[in-house]
Amino acid sequence: MQPVISALNLSKTYRRGTEQVHALASVSFEIGAGELVAVVGPSGSGKTTLLNLLGCMDVPTSGDLSIMGHPTRGLSERALTRLRRDQVGFVFQHFGLIPTLTVEENIRLPGLFSGKQVKHRAAELCTRVGLDHRRRHRPHELSGGEMQRVAIARALLNEPHLLLADEPTGNLDSVTGGSIISLLQELTAQGLTVVVVTHNDRLAESAARRLVLEDGRLAPSI
C-alpha cells in the first residue's frame, strides 16, 4: 500500500545572518494511512521544521518528499498550495482562528479557497466535534478546547488524507487536552493519517509511532 508520507534524506538548512543552521539533516521515514505518529524531541530539534516541510509550507534544501505519492520536489508555489489545500489539514497550537468569523464560518474558510460547496460538510463537522451549540459564536466566546476543536474541524473540511498538528494540546489543560487526544485517535481510527508535534507525554504515548528528533537528526524509532 502506498504510504501517505515518504521522506528520503530530507534536509533543511537556514541561513541566520552569516551562520548556517542545519534544522534537519538527512531525515528518512515513511508514514502509512491511518497512523497516528508523534514527532517528539527537545526544543530546537527540528520538529516544527519537519512539520512545515510535510505540510508543503516550506521546501527542503535537499532530499525527496512525497505526499500521497505526489513528489514535491520542483513543484511550483501554486502546485504546492494545491497539494496543501487538497491533501493536508493543519492544526496549530494557537488555534489560528479568524476572530471576526463565527465558529461555522471559520470551519468553512478553507472551502472559500478550494471553491467547494462546503455548507453541509461544515455543519456536519461542527456536530462531529461537538460544537453544534456554538455555531454562531465567535472565537473569543469559546474555551481553549472548543477553539482547538474548531481548528480540527476546519482542518478536516477539505477531506484531507493527512492531518498535521503542531502542539495541539500545548495551550490546553490536561482534561481538555485529553479530549483532543481522544478526538485525534478517533480520526485515526477512521483512516486519517495524523502527525503531531508534541511535548505532551500523554499525546506522544497515545501515538502508534514516535519519531524522535535530536539536533535535526532522527533517533532510532521507539
Partner: peptide, 16 residues
Amino acid sequence: TREIGTMRAIGASRPD
C-alpha cells in the same frame, strides 16, 4: 500577518 499565514496553511493561494 499571522492570520495570512494561517490562511496560506489552510489552502489560500497568493492570488487568494
